[in-house]
């Protein structure tokens, strides 16, 4: 009887451990996501600048024709911890876009070329226009997409790599719907966006599907978490600082308590 009771403490501890190590309660898909070795993972994670710059190119030339990124401004592209384009490059990038500004002194709206302080130009004026152009589906805004999906960066990467030529026989697809191995529900209205050779990298890197997916996901991760590098840097410093402080305070505490508990 006693032995049986004693086990509750251990059972409780085991259950707590299992829960903590496996918190993904609402598992929507049982497929194991692809997990590339991201440079931004880990305690000292940093973005790969070249990859972010290439990722921006993929976004601009491929994704941006349907997906907005309305929370970002062109100036962000020059900020520390991001793609770190130079100020001149950012000016040049921004000036490629037409922006509606105004009203001017005559009360008229007018077109001008973009400035670094402008938000990323959106492909559609509103959600309805976007839906109407995409067969009813709404390509989500990608500003925080990397934080808005279970699995985050790995998930987006997996979806980009998850298009397969052959659709399994048990899945029936309507017109304009594609099979994707990793997409939640396995059906996606976006055709494979990153086919081989869809863009040509300005830095001469070979634009394989894998390379483009990796670059654009890095870019999206940065876009969702622009202060990731400083966060990890500061995190490491504060943890070390607190660790030393804790040890010192613990030793002080020990010493204080010796006043009433002299060593035997």
């Amino acid at each position: 009887m006693k032995l049986f009771f004693l086990k509750f403490k251990s059972i409780t501890l085991i259950v707590i451990f299992v829960l903590i190590s496996n918190v993904s309660f609402s598992k929507e898909s049982n497929v194991q996501l692809l997990k590339p070795d991201w440079s931004f993972n880990g305690f000292f994670g940093k973005f790969d600048r070249a990859s972010l710059q290439r990722g921006y190119q993929v976004y601009k030339e491929v994704c941006a024709s349907c997906h907005s990124m309305s929370l970002l401004s062109y100036r962000n592209l020059a900020e520390k911890g991001g793609p770190e384009f130079t100020a001149e490059e950012v000016k040049a990038i921004a000036s490629q876009f037409e922006v509606t500004d105004g009203p001017n002194n005559d009360g008229e709206m007018f077109q001008r070329s973009g400035k670094p302080s402008d938000r990323f130009a959106s492909p559609y004026p509103n959600e309805n226009a976007s839906r109407s152009a995409n067969g009813g589906a709404y390509p989500p805004d990608m500003s925080v997409l990397a934080k808005a999906r279970p699995g985050g960066s790995d998930y987006i990467y997996s979806v980009l790599m998850g298009y397969e030529e052959k659709t399994p026989e048990n899945i029936k697809l309507e017109e304009g719907v594609y099979y994707n191995k990793y997409m939640i529900g396995n059906k996606i209205r976006m055709a494979n966006p990153l086919s081989e050779g869809v863009i040509e990298y300005t830095d001469g890197t070979k634009a394989s599907q894998e390379q483009m997916a990796k670059d654009v996901v890095s870019f999206l991760t940065w876009a969702a978490e622009p202060h990731l590098e400083i966060r990890k840097e500061l995190g490491f410093k504060s943890v070390i600082y607190l660790l030393i402080l804790t040890i010192l305070v613990y030793l002080i505490k020990k010493k204080i308590w010796l006043r009433i508990e002299p060593k035997v």
């Binding site: 660790l243 402080l245 804790t246 305070v249 204080i256």
Partner: peptide
């Protein structure tokens, strides 16, 4: 002093 140790571990 003892509470401070507890707080610091928690903060860590």
């Amino acid at each position: 002093s003892k509470d401070l140790v507890g707080m610091l571990v928690f903060l860590l």
